[in-house]
């Protein structure tokens, strides 16, 4: 299978869906770039070059550069979705949700319910998240728990290029509003990605490692760290199951519960802040559903309860890493590990 980067995988998913369905349009700030400027057109292809080359192939009628006006264009995408298009809007950094959240959580997410089931809102929002980029407090957050909280939204966190193409394709074809979280440190990650279009269903976790001792549930970029930790621990004789839920909403409760029951130990790795995040959610779920099957207290590996710091010296401590995951697994294993 051909190797592609996370960036290429996303670009390919968008292109294939635009070619497949003329109702698919994309919009966002500088997603093509150079709009109205005298110089190069398609100058950026988005701040990370993810959508580069799509405008020349599909024209400015379907690749819409927006002014810096998140409230208007995210709301516009919601309205367009409710009236017949299948827009893919890029919210450059999820941190910018502060200026458009109403359009997502009060409007798009609730149309279906408020209107008695008669609205269909096939809206996709792609957004960048995550620390590790020296981007400081307003460009580094992992705000997916906030979106996960809202009924009516679906939330996907692709952990590698294969997942990125399949989950984004599913998001675009899905008839509900979906927020796809792309970790900004993963755009150059490479992996095998089929040339053909494919979808990965939402709410179906991917078990990336199967082991007997500890179940590690991890999200987005943290899945890769969890895999690395599991491989290291394997050599030390601790065998881990690693679960990538793929989507936080819907959440594959069954796979989390089944795999945790098999091992009796749980470690959840979540790059988000610790209060009301996915780690606390899953530990709560497991505690309620299968307390008796637990051999040890569940462990949570998360970012601390502070804004993302700028200084590399601080940010490197802030982001959960392989060593912390290994330590949490050993903690769950108890004495002698």
């Amino acid at each position: 299978m051909p190797k592609k980067s996370y960036r290429q995988a996303i670009n390919e998913a968008i292109r294939q869906e635009m070619a497949r369905d003329e109702r698919v349009i994309i919009m966002g700030e500088d997603i093509s770039g150079g709009m109205g400027a005298p110089g190069e057109q398609d100058a950026w292809g988005g701040p990370m070059g993810v959508t580069k080359g799509i405008m020349p192939d599909f024209s400015r009628d379907r690749v819409l550069d927006t002014p810096i006006t998140e409230s208007a264009f995210i709301g516009c995408a919601a309205g367009a979705a409710a009236t017949g298009l299948r827009p893919v809007a890029e919210l450059m950094f999820v941190d910018f949700m502060g200026v458009c959240f109403d359009q997502i959580f009060n409007q798009a997410a609730k149309f279906k319910y408020m209107f008695g089931g008669k609205a269909v809102t096939p809206l996709t929002i792609r957004t960048m998240y995550g620390a590790g980029f020296r981007a400081a407090s307003q460009h580094s957050q992992c705000l997916y728990p906030l979106f996960t909280h809202i009924p009516g939204l679906k939330v996907a966190l692709p952990s590698n290029p294969y997942e990125a193409k399949g989950l984004l394709t599913q998001a675009i074809r899905d008839d509900d509003p979906v927020i796809v979280f792309e970790h900004k440190a993963m755009y150059d990650d490479e992996g095998e990605v089929p040339d053909e279009a494919y979808t990965i269903p939402f709410g179906e976790a991917n078990v990336t490692r199967e082991g007997d001792d500890v179940t590690i549930v991890a999200f987005g970029r943290m899945v890769n760290f969890a895999n690395e930790a599991a491989d290291n621990l394997e050599k030390a004789g601790i065998s881990c199951t690693v679960v990538d839920p793929r989507t936080t909403s819907p959440l594959d409760r069954d796979t989390i519960l089944e795999t945790t029951e098999e091992t009796g130990r749980l470690v959840v790795v979540d790059e988000a802040h610790p209060r009301c995040n996915m780690a606390s959610d899953i530990v709560g779920l497991v505690s309620q559903e299968m307390f008796g099957a637990l051999k040890a207290a569940p462990q949570m590996v998360t970012a601390p309860h502070c804004p993302v710091p700028f200084s590399p010296a601080l940010e490197d401590i802030y982001v959960p890493g392989v060593a912390r995951i290994e330590a949490a697994v050993r903690q769950a294993m108890g004495k002698g590990h």
Partner: peptide
Amino acid sequence: EEVIRYKRLD
């Protein structure tokens, strides 16, 4: 996994 990936193709 290969079989599942194949079956996901359009």
